[in-house]
Amino acid sequence: MSEILETNEDYVISVDNVTVRFNKATEKINDLKEYFVKLVKHELMFQEFLALKDVSLHVKKGEAWAIIGTNGSGKSTLLKVISKILKPYKGSVTVKGSIASLIELGAGIDPKLTARENIYLNGCILGYSKKFIDEKFDEIVEFSELEEFLDSPVRNFSSGMKSRLGFSVATMIEPDILIVDEVLSVGDVLFRKKCMNKMNDMLSKGTTLLFVSHNMSTVRTMCKKALWLNNGNVVCQGDIEDVCSRYTETIEAMKAEEKKKKLQAAKKPAGKH
């Protein structure tokens, strides 16, 4: 027992045998009338859907992990479980330290408020005190390059400007764990580069990183380790090069097969006519 405890000490994120279940209702029932109608008709059935199946992941302090997989493989669900947005159905998640999750940049941005007001609102949503944000305010503004637009409402901002604002608030605050979910696809090249540098900078300072991206070259430069998910199952995890090369091979193979099918499908109706 003591051995297990000791080994657990090293991990900042421990995900143990996590299963996430959704009720994939055939029709979404969210009003009372519908509920009673279905209840009377005995149609109140739920279809179980497992978004993650028995997934385990252990991350040590300062490690950078990439989470890869095709769309709908459960990557975002895993990130949501780690950032406490979703509760697992089975298994447990323990996280040590503060988390900044960039699952969607500027989720808490209110378009009717000004940039200045949004910095405070977002900072507070991430769990920081007003005093702390006061101290970091200039730094945040400088990084976001939005000095000129501080007092204009965010609804007039472009999506790039909005994500700059979101990223600046989330990262300036130096969390212990940074969770990034394919959010840097917006914004210009220069800002993207700036964000990458910032993330590298944070990594060197000991921040732990979880990174979801479909861009294999970015993933390879940013991360040391990788976890590959497919349909909620862990295919493999470990060193980034191994996982990535296996992943790319599989994807290439799938692509080739799809092409073949398409060709066959194209041939068939042509033959019938």
Binding site: I85, I99, S101, I103, E104, A107, G108
Partner: peptide
Amino acid sequence: TTLLKKTYV
């Protein structure tokens, strides 16, 4: 909803 889906508060 957007906020609750993306961050823990």
